[in-house]
Design a protein around this nucleic acid. Structure first.
Lengths: 117, 117
DNA sequence: GCCCATAGTGTCGAAAAGGATACCATTGGA
DNA sequence: TCCAATGGTATCCTTTTCGACACTATGGGC
């Protein structure tokens, strides 16, 4: 389980904002969720899309996303090992959120320009 | 300046997501921005809307939000001291993001129900 | 036997975030 | 003089996050 910045989110109307943020604010989670929006990806496929991420950190973030029910992790019985990651049903409901974040960043953060992937 | 989880956000299409998150992911920032959406608030007004926040932490988060250009801080020459906080023009452009986060939390996080403020 | 591919795990340390507590500054009113 | 209001600041500590580095497991091909 990842970071718990708040213990509870039932305190005031704005808490839902914090509740949602607590699920997606780990380093790399936002960009991972964004890439999974376009379909299934394997561990190394995700990794190659993220500059400078360490294996350790990517594994950790993926495990947290899985634990929070946002992604699914499918292990194949084969060698070399194969693990597929997808957005879960629940994760799919986050698409408007992720797109809102991306749109804002594209427009308002000068160094976050949208490049071809 | 708050936490800098990434140094740069020009690496791939999903970076804009992380760029935006880096501005709003401090503890309390989401809920602060949400409450400022409905208008000017003074320090203690904000504080009273946030359960369990310490003065120290609230001041710190407000200063970061200000430094990132998301809110404005207006100091009045009076006693007792009066400081007003508002969303900046730039901060206002975040409203769709904050609302998307809140909507998702209201629907998907059982303990983040929407209470009357 | 060695190397490759894939997807990790273990361990420890550095850095950052968050928190507790006490204290501060100003004027105005009693 | 003391207390109230407001919005902080200083200091130190605790907790969490992130990163570096090394190592692991499996089968297949040469």
């Amino acid at each position: 389980m990842g970071r718990t910045r708040h213990d509870r989110f039932d305190c005031s109307p704005g808490c839902a904002v914090e509740a949602t943020l607590s699920l997606i604010d780990g380093k790399w989670k936002g960009v991972v969720l964004y890439h999974l929006m376009s379909g299934t990806l394997r561990f190394n496929e995700i990794r190659r899309k993220l500059p400078n991420v360490t294996q350790r950190m990517l594994t950790n973030q993926l495990r947290e996303l899985e634990a929070d029910g946002l992604i699914t992790r499918t292990v194949f019985a084969q060698v070399p090992p194969r693990v597929d990651y997808d957005l879960s049903e629940r994760g799919r409901t986050l698409e408007p959120v992720i797109l809102a974040l991306k749109n804002w960043g594209d427009v308002n953060m000068p160094s976050a320009g949208s490049f071809a992937a």
